[in-house]
Design a protein around this nucleic acid. Structure first.
Lengths: 215, 215
DNA sequence: GTCTATATCTAGATAGAC
DNA sequence: GTCTATCTAGATATAGAC
């Protein structure tokens, strides 16, 4: 083997070990939470001792950082790509919801870590990008809804800030119960059912019968 | 003051101190998470030293236990009460959603603790009641939706397990952003907007236009 | 009922041998 | 690249004085 070949193999070996450690870490951060997971837990899962882990990462924080950056970059790229296609508000909404559920399917652990730890981590300067991403995501969603209302495909008179929060939350909390392995429901199938509820509602016919509050 | 009066005052003092400590604990568990909150944090907030806290509670676990039991008992009682009124599926749904948002308003910290810590705590025997409550809540919701479909007020052909999860999640995750103090939106006002989305959807007219998956 | 002092444990992280 | 050994900090919890 040439020196170059050896070097490449070594790098591949090192990076695959890194990836393996990250995968274990993501799984455990998702399952028990970031703070409840010890570096010993992660090292154990990978069959090494905690000291050895520091050859690959310089802290537990660096691990969660890498996990979150990777996930957010991909997700944001995917959303941008869909919007760039200019399908119109309704089809963009559908594509984005489907992409989100597919993301849950493909990167369950990462999504769960983001979902349950972002709020806590955001307070540290190192993780300020989490807040920035939130702003971007919000702008994207609200813009989509505004377009939809303007074009007459979404109802008028809704509080779009609320709509945004409901959609965002409902899509992402699914990560806590969605297990593609066991059941038969594909990400697409779930997305379709969800979109049916979101676009048409669960009621039969239009109502406007909820008693309005006095205040 | 009579001996009896003194005893009552002492008990009242003790129990109000307990309540105060629990309130601080709930606030901090909600904000930073159960494990990230130290007994020192709680004691500090109440203006005492960590050792003194153990005069009132025998462990940090006991504190979160008391918080969750109190919250779940009240919430479940409230739901039962609404169902006992036999208002029919649609009005029951509306009343339960409104009651849930009111609960978020009135007991924000407790709801947040339940929301973010139940999954972790459930694995310990001491907190097995969390799992039991989940089963009861699920039975109640699914039953409500089944009645509604049977009576023709909710659409047929929906996966009610999915509907249940979406409703449950959307209602409860609101605790992470809903701050009644600042804004003008009352719990009732949010519940109404939410019910409008849930019952009628955000789309204009019926569609059935989501491309069905091939699988 | 609170304080002081401290026992005990567990965590993240480092240094140097192999 | 992994192991052994260990440092340091911070956590829960306890005991006994006041």
């Amino acid at each position: 083997m040439s020196p170059r070949g050896r070097k490449q193999a070594a790098e591949l070996g090192a990076s695959s070990r890194r990836a393996e450690l990250l995968a274990h870490a993501a799984e455990m951060f998702a399952e028990r939470g970031f703070r409840a997971t010890t570096v010993r837990d992660i090292a154990d899962a990978a069959g090494m001792l905690s000291g050895s882990l520091y050859h690959h990462f310089d802290s537990k924080e660096s691990m969660v950082d890498e996990i979150l950056r990777g996930f957010l970059d991909e997700l944001f790229g995917r959303y941008q790509e869909i919007l760039a296609r200019e399908l119109g508000p309704r089809q963009s909404l559908e594509a984005i919801v489907i992409a989100s559920f597919e993301c849950i399917e493909a990167r369950r652990a990462e999504v769960a870590v983001y979902q349950s730890e972002a709020k806590y981590l955001m307070r540290f300067e190192r993780f300020s990008y989490l807040g920035e991403r939130n702003v971007e995501f919000r702008k994207m969603w609200i813009g989509l809804f505004e377009d939809g209302v303007r074009q007459g495909v979404f109802r008028q008179g809704m509080d779009l800030e609320l709509v945004y929060r409901f959609v965002r939350d409902t899509v992402w909390v699914a990560v806590h119960w969605y297990r593609p392995e066991g059941g038969e429901l594909s990400a697409r199938a779930i997305a379709e059912q969800y979109l049916e509820i979101l676009l048409d509602g669960i009621g039969v016919g239009r109502r406007n019968t909820v008693a309005k509050s006095n205040g």
